[in-house]
Amino acid sequence: MMHESTKDGAWFAPKRFGYGAGLPIAWQGWALMLLYVASVAGIALLNRAGTTGARMAALALFLLVTGLFVVIAAKRTRGGWKWRSGKRD
């Protein structure tokens, strides 16, 4: 869906059914998603270190990175996050 206009500054399309964001519609959304996946992969490697401190750090980093991703995605979704039941906005 890269053909859609992003003049409104949206990085993500809204989901048609449910709550949240759909797929990215701008390169910034794809970059954010790639950065999130890479961060989670790095955190998984930290978690494999095995020590208790490393696992606690991995959990804290995972919660922080996921929280940031959700906040940015919510702010950059066309029309914001709200419940949608298949009707057009």
Rank of each mutant, 00 (worst) to 15 (best):
A60Y: 01
G80H: 09
L64Y: 09
K82L: 11
L63I: 13
D89P: 15
L23S: 15
A10G: 04
G42K: 01
G20W: 01
G9F: 04
S39P: 02
I43V: 05
R78Q: 09
L61G: 06
S39M: 12
L59M: 05
W27Y: 08
D89W: 15
S5R: 10
M56Q: 05
D8M: 07
D89F: 14
G18Q: 01
M33N: 15
A74D: 11
S39C: 14
A44C: 14
G67I: 07
W81G: 11
G42E: 03
H3M: 09
G50N: 03
L32A: 11
A38R: 05
I43H: 00
F62D: 07
F69P: 04
G53Y: 06
G20M: 00
A38C: 04
M1G: 12
A31K: 06
R16W: 11
G18T: 00
A26L: 01
Y19W: 10
N47R: 09
S5G: 13
R78K: 09
G18F: 00
I72E: 13
R78A: 05
Y19K: 01
R78W: 08
I72A: 15
I43G: 02
A44T: 12
F12N: 01
W11N: 03
A58H: 11
V65R: 05
Q28K: 12
L32R: 06
G67F: 12
F12R: 03
A13C: 07
Y36A: 02
W27F: 08
W83P: 05
W27S: 08
A54Y: 06
W83I: 08
G20Y: 00
V37A: 15
F69G: 01
L34E: 10
V65N: 03
L34Q: 10
F69V: 03
M1R: 10
P14T: 00
G80L: 05
R88L: 15
A58W: 03
L46S: 02
G80E: 10
Y19E: 06
I25A: 02
T66C: 02
I72W: 13
G53P: 08
I25F: 07
I25M: 04
R78P: 04
G22V: 00
D8E: 07
A38V: 02
A60F: 05
F62W: 14
R84V: 01
G29E: 01
A54W: 10
R48H: 11
H3L: 08
Y36N: 03
T77Y: 08
T66E: 05
M2L: 06
L64S: 08
G67W: 06
F69Q: 03
F69L: 12
M33K: 14
N47A: 12
G67H: 04
K82C: 06
G9T: 04
Q28W: 05
R48F: 10
V40E: 13
Y19R: 13
F12M: 05
